[in-house]
Design a protein around this nucleic acid. Structure first.
Lengths: 196, 196
DNA sequence: GGATCGCTTGAACGTCCATTCAAGTCATGC
DNA sequence: GCATGACTTGAATGGACGTTCAAGCGATCC
């Protein structure tokens, strides 16, 4: 049995991802969760507090909800990076290029977020990039020694977010695929250069 | 002498870039433009029509307002690409990583934009990437022959948008710089591989 | 000098939305 | 069986926002 608090939290998580934070009204969330205003405000003093809990849920879910399923049966650390990108592709495909990365959406729709919100967005980005970096570290022998793997992980995240943004705008997977293909080309060259 | 229509249009252009479309109220625009509601609605039947005009202004301004100044004194076509990225860096730096790319912001904050809006966002992306592609074509002799320069331009745009997004969120230029540095590394390898 | 038309004025309107609150339910501990 | 405190109910509130409109201004044309 799911608690009222959880129904509200997950309804918000879904709606913030689908329609964005600003465009989602409290009434939307209440209807989706089957709850009343008083219950919501009992658990979450303001809409922003609800957003914070949603962002914490995303943060805590990066591994179990996103990476673990993406990496099932994938051992090669570099393939793990591309399997992760494949998850975003699948999400775009399933939703006709409507939903991409919820963190990226909120990050750009709130232009001057209050510090706790901004920090949680940053933490989500750092967590994602940190896991990619771990993959790159695990593959360090196959990459040029002088390459900064932290920066490379940041780069991977940038490509993902920028690819998702373009695909959502053009409503085609083409731009996302093109970005990932170019990233793959870069990794091929990095590995070739590491060998020689 | 600037017409009232233009004052409203440019006030909107600036505010949409600074605070986003949804977070900018008509009252904000009126105050910034020193105009009255009736005047605004005389020229722009709805807020969305105003957004459309703003996006058309951006589209028409890509070359004269963005590329021309970025490319002053830069002849090498590959350096032009990085000079363009340098403009975004300068914008981030000037605003303490608050304002990035207005098109990207609006693209992510409107989750299901009406078709005319979505198409204008797409046109802005295509225009930007098209100019980058022209640079790459001009440098085609220095790049591997089998590389798809259209996809590479899309990739550059993705890196820019993803880098801007992370820098705005972390409030540091570090992530943007890291992304551009990795892109530069990729271009170096592309050119080295084209030579051999 | 009067009619026309593009533009301006700014108060008013209606809707939506985040938030509040007084009253109620129900399990737990005493 | 009563008191307590956690949670629920849903109507009410007040403010913000996009939009409307009746009235006015001033230049141009006849």
């Amino acid at each position: 049995m799911e608690s009222t608090r959880d129904r509200i939290l997950f309804a918000a998580l879904e709606l913030f991802g689908e329609k964005g934070y600003l465009s989602t009204s409290i009434a939307d969330i209440l209807k989706a969760a089957g709850a009343n205003a008083g219950s919501l405000y009992h658990f979450f003093p303001t809409k922003q507090d609800l957003l914070i809990s949603v962002l914490e849920t995303y943060r805590d879910g990066i591994y179990p909800m996103l990476l673990a399923p993406a990496w099932e049966g994938v051992d090669d650390p570099i393939e793990k990076v591309f399997a992760l990108l494949g998850r975003y592709r699948a999400m775009l495909e399933m939703t006709d290029c409507l939903y991409g990365c919820p963190i990226g959406s909120v990050a750009l729709e709130l232009h001057e977020p209050d510090p706790p919100v901004r920090e949680l967005l940053a933490v989500n980005f750092s967590g994602w990039a940190g896991h990619v970096r771990d993959c790159l570290d695990a593959a360090s022998g196959r990459l040029p020694a002088d390459i900064d793997r932290g920066k490379l992980a940041t780069f991977v995240l940038a490509v993902m977010e920028g690819g998702v943004m373009q695909s959502r705008t053009h409503r085609t997977l083409e731009t996302f695929d093109a970005s990932v293909e170019m990233l793959r080309d870069h990794f091929n060259r990095l590995q070739a250069d590491a060998r020689s």
